[in-house]
Design a binder for these strands. Structure first.
Lengths: 157, 157
DNA sequence: TATCCAAGGTCAAAGAAAGTCAATAGCAAA
DNA sequence: TTTGCTATTGACTTTCTTTGACCTTGGATA
């Protein structure tokens, strides 16, 4: 009395094993293969392939669209997963964020360079105060990251 | 599956590499080579060879008409500085940001990994729209960056 | 100069995916 | 039997691509 969601889940996991953790598929193909509604695929992904489960989903719409599932390297990095699913939470001030990053660098879960990039991305300076203007926020974030890269590359010389 | 637009994009980039960054073509020839509508060529140019992407397009109509694509090669520091002082500006939507990042990666001014991190940092998904709560924004940004690192490290194996 | 033809340009409509969401269905536990 | 979770479905939306009809430009030629 297997639920179709479970069948699809197993199928995808088998494919992921074969393909070493990364997999691209067509939502409609998969749906018609299992004779289910296309949105069923989204349901399966949303309930069984979330971050908490250790998977990362990307997708693209339109002609030639796809869904990509990446199995995250969780075994080794379960501290990262802890951060993602619990440690960080819905809000995070600059100080705590920096502490997390520092910890990640010290534990060598991320490189120093990655740490720099992340500090740049989350810095208070990058987030222009209250205005909920997404684009303004993003501009600040990217500028800050570029500055950081300039600084890193400068030190090499 | 494979989008014809992507195929044409790759083809043109390969030609550009061979020809040291400058390239002239006939729209109709290219279209019939790929058996697509001529306006498809315009679509490819408009979506993948803009100034933000680091390319410059000139063209002429009429008999003996042509389309010329020039890849803008600049010094790293100049370009980065340009982006920081003018290119990015006070606001930046996701699409433009991704174009800039793509350009940086293609010119090898930043590593692919850095590009990934930056895409993660500026992704629309990372910026929880309405709440102008800085901390919430930051949480999203950091989560996204960590996810990206996990995905990158996973793919190595 | 006027006309014609050979380009390239534009734009809107159609097509091809994937995403969202709310209504409904199934089932198990209380 | 009610309640409450998990599944399933389908209508509607959004995004990206492809196509084709029509427009504009520039050179050649009568």
């Amino acid at each position: 009395m297997a639920r179709i969601s479970d069948v699809i889940e197993d199928f995808l996991k088998a494919l992921l094993t074969e393909s070493e953790g990364e997999l691209e598929l067509q939502r409609n193909d998969l749906a018609s293969y299992f004779e289910c509604a296309p949105s069923q695929i989204n349901y399966v992904l949303a309930t069984r392939f979330t971050l908490n489960h250790g998977y990362y989903i990307e997708s693209r719409r339109g002609g030639g669209g796809f869904i990509r599932i990446t199995r995250l390297d969780v075994e080794k990095d379960d501290y990262m997963l802890y951060l993602l699913t619990e440690g960080i939470g819905k809000e995070l001030n600059e100080q705590n964020a920096k502490q997390h990053i520092q910890c990640l660098v010290e534990q060598e879960f991320v490189t120093k360079r990655d740490g720099q990039l992340m500090r740049a991305a989350i810095s208070n300076k990058t987030i222009p105060i209250p205005s909920s203007l997404k684009d303004a926020i993003r501009a600040g974030v990217l500028k800050s990251m570029l500055t950081s890269i300039l600084a890193l590359d400068g030190k090499d010389k």
